[in-house]
Amino acid sequence: MHHTFLVVSDIHYRLDNVEKLKKWLIQKDRLKDINSIIISGDFVNADYITPLTTEKDKKEFRELLSVFEKFGKPLYYVPGNHDPDTTFLPSSSSDEEKKDEILNSINFHQKVIQISSGLSIVGFGGSTDAVWKNQPETVVWPAFPQNTESLLTEKLPILLDQIKEDDIILITHVGPSKVGTTDVDIFPSKEPSTAIEAGSPILRKILESRTSTPENQLNYNIAINIHGHSHYPFGLSHIGQTMVINPGPFCDGRFAILTLSQLDKEILLQRDKERMNYYKNSNKSNFWVMEGLEFFFV
């Protein structure tokens, strides 16, 4: 069994790039391979400092969802710090959400969705404070919502605990701290340092505590954490068993295609020698694993 995701983040209302992407997928004959679209936030450029969501922000947000709807694929997204504040509200109390549902797009911020047999996605939007690495007390980019870190502490473990045996793809806007896909260090030799720690310490702690080890096997497996927010350091990293993916900023034309396969435990024991002890000691009979990850620049 396979599932292929088109992974996009940080669009910042670049409608022209969305049109280029659709043409690229058709020309390369890749659109037919896509099962779902994942967007990890920052559709538009709402002012999160004020914060003041305008009607223009809401209109542009709905416009982008409508354009992605024309791809003809199920769309799952979480809001970023530059998205309308209404996208963080429960769907029952948000007119924006009702409009989104008509477009066959699902905001799964603080929700769990089983997307395939044995595979669930968990969503959590928003950003945490980004700080200077050599001055961690100084905030460079403020969190939005301001209580995102405390919400992660309180809410994310509850969401994860709802999943009993499925493998998990965790989609967040901000990534975990101290990994290569969140730290912004453009000029490493510059003094004084301009490096920015843009990831969430709480998210990292949660991933650290919930990764299986040969001695401590968990029934579920957070196979992948997909995030955005940090524009410069796109790519692939990991925390324990969890692979961490940042597709890069789509406002610059970057995106990724991720393919997962559900493989039998016995096959993995023969093929994946580095994780042999993890599979061998697990009670699970099969696992969703990353078969392919491609980064593109449209």
Rank of each mutant, 00 (worst) to 15 (best):
Y76W: 13
K70E: 11
E63V: 11
N104V: 01
E101T: 07
E69Y: 15
S94L: 01
L103A: 09
S91V: 02
P74E: 06
I102Q: 08
F71D: 04
D83W: 09
L75A: 07
P84F: 06
S91Y: 02
E96F: 05
N104C: 02
L75D: 06
D95R: 12
R62C: 09
N104H: 06
F68G: 03
P74Y: 11
K56S: 05
F71Q: 03
E63S: 11
P51M: 03
T53E: 10
P79G: 09
D85S: 06
I102Y: 14
V78M: 08
F68A: 01
K59P: 01
P90D: 10
I113F: 12
V67A: 06
F61N: 08
L75S: 09
E101I: 12
V67S: 03
L103W: 03
E63C: 07
V78L: 06
E69K: 15
L103F: 12
K70G: 00
V112G: 00
S92G: 00
I113T: 13
S92V: 10
N81T: 07
S93P: 00
F88I: 04
F108T: 08
E60I: 01
F61Y: 15
Q110S: 11
Q114W: 02
N104Q: 05
I115N: 04
I115V: 14
Y77F: 15
Y77N: 03
V112E: 01
H109Y: 11
F108W: 02
T87G: 04
D57K: 08
P84G: 12
L75I: 15
Y77G: 08
K56N: 03
D100P: 00
E60H: 10
G72Y: 03
D85H: 04
S94A: 07
N81H: 14
L52K: 13
V112C: 02
S92A: 08
I106M: 08
D57G: 09
K70Y: 09
K111H: 13
I102C: 07
P84D: 12
K99I: 14
T54V: 10
P84I: 07
